[in-house]
Design a protein around this nucleic acid. Sequence first.
DNA 1: CGAGGTTGTTCAAACGTTTGAGCAAATTAA
DNA 2: TTAATTTGCTCAAACGTTTGAACAACCTCG
Lengths: 353, 353
Amino acid sequence: MFNRLSKCIKKLGNKKKTTIKDIANVLGITPSAVSRALNNHPRISEKTKIAVKQVAENLNYQPNHLASALRKGKSNLVGVIIPRNNSNFFSSVLENIEEVLNKKGYNIIITQSNESYKKECSSIEALLYTQVDGVIASMANETVDLSYYEKIKSKGIPLILFDRGENDLNVDYVGIDDYLTSHMIVEHLLDQGCKRIAHIAGYSKTRIYKNRIRGYNDALEKHGLPIEKDLIIESNLRLNDGRRVMQELLNLNERPDAVYAAGDYAALGALQVLEEQGIKVPEEIALVGFSNEPFTSFVKPSISTIDQKSALIGKLAAEAFLERVNNPKVKASLNKIIVDAELIIRDSSNKKE
Amino acid sequence: MFNRLSKCIKKLGNKKKTTIKDIANVLGITPSAVSRALNNHPRISEKTKIAVKQVAENLNYQPNHLASALRKGKSNLVGVIIPRNNSNFFSSVLENIEEVLNKKGYNIIITQSNESYKKECSSIEALLYTQVDGVIASMANETVDLSYYEKIKSKGIPLILFDRGENDLNVDYVGIDDYLTSHMIVEHLLDQGCKRIAHIAGYSKTRIYKNRIRGYNDALEKHGLPIEKDLIIESNLRLNDGRRVMQELLNLNERPDAVYAAGDYAALGALQVLEEQGIKVPEEIALVGFSNEPFTSFVKPSISTIDQKSALIGKLAAEAFLERVNNPKVKASLNKIIVDAELIIRDSSNKKE
DNA sequence: CGAGGTTGTTCAAACGTTTGAGCAAATTAA
DNA sequence: TTAATTTGCTCAAACGTTTGAACAACCTCG
């Protein structure tokens, strides 16, 4: 056995990667026994297992994922598609997805759609080509055509959406209840004594922004306040667009006394305009944003906002995927997991004390 | 031929994925001919190619990446390791790496080390297991032991470092010249009339922060200014640590009249403390950060900082990888690609006008 | 002592591609 | 017309693993 080993070590000189075959040769057993030993198969003797692992270690054996994935028809790779990577929300979601899935032996492939439908399609294409075992995605704002997502479903692998999803697509979803969250914001502002609440809305075709608008409207109605079209202005929610919308609101005959922006960057833009014009926040106009971007806590005044529980959403999305993989037959109930968002009240909307 | 086709379509009913074998059966040719047709092999007739592609389309054929990667010994996957995903710098680098590599048929697997050495090791492990064709990485702050990176090199696949690299590891590197950039900052502050420039330094074991400190020292020396130990304080560069260091600096017998922080978050922390204490920026103390995080442009006063050309760095790192893959023999010269950083002068250090 | 079960292993096929070698037919050159 | 070359394909092995089936050797039990 010893000269077998040394022969093999010599062979290793020419840089070929070690395979289970090499291990088998060293020990004088077959590759299948080695494979089973490495996978702790019950029908392999403890003695052999130890020997195999020892030799594997010595030869610096690294299993070839490609081969086993091919044979098993399972890659242990999960694709994650996010719109953009620079927000704190997505980075935290990712971190948690990864944490949960790594523990179960999955690795993740992250792709950014950059909010572009075209890029999103090519990402899906690439992920499917890589034979991922599932996809966890948050849709680009632009995306209306769902055929590429249908393609994932038709492959028979799990598809989990988070944050940005579509009801039409019949799949698992994890996110907050935008409608209720909007309610919460409006009621907080009313509670602060505000009477004319404006809404810097997101792209009204996207489900989540649509729901925020609905929530805003219904909350006003519920409290007997009129819904004024002038006070709802659609925006791409970027900083500069927040400025533009705030300016428009200030140009109205009757100014609002509160602004609820569907995104933090838009809220920041609004805040800048208010500051430039010497309008006191929150005394004259109160302000609430959405997403809890880090900067909301350190600008002056700090901006009230919504914490979307990114860590929890990531964790739940990953678990939803695992659930689907482990119980592929249960096609029946699709989960809509709704996480409670949290309103973080900061200076920009806190008139009391 | 037509009944062959319909037979095959029927077969497809039972959800099995189409393979080149299926296409071969339909057309009555061999799988190898199909493979060659799909890959535009010159020895396949135009007629056959067209027929194969037509049938492939009809049967909704999707090539199995795992199989071809296994056979070719090449996965067309590139691993990217970044410390954290929430900074604008890394997200922009990623976007550009992806753009360049996608064009060449590569997909990227992104993993976050979360600045943890342990996580970094397991990421490397995972990437190697997935048989990536190369790794592009920015090292975690913690990382001192390079053995895991050596492991990548020993696999014989390209390793490209960016931003955070180590000279000891003999590999390609893309980044800015931290030493010169520090010079530039110090000279800008001197130009503004500052005489006592403090430095909120990064972890002095990390190469880039070490170089920033060296640059700071040498620039002062060059201009005949003393180097005062009290004015250089090491920090983890997070917001709160920036506050702590700024407080320490203010407690000195003789206050600095300028602060150069090696990171934007630390600069922001410093700014908060200055504002709270009613110290005028830049008049009493000028401030410069590092990295051009978005918030530096919208806080009041806006913070002068360094743009590290993230897009360019991403692009160059990806190209360095491609270079290595295409010319594996050229072991000789390893590239240190140095990109010129740009000083963005904003209100926090602009005393003139 | 023989039937039945368990243990530890081998055998061979399979996963879906790619690719060097081989070969017949068609084309070109001499 | 024949030899040489080109064209268009087939054959079979290979990539490294996993896995159902088979089987010998050993153990157990009545």
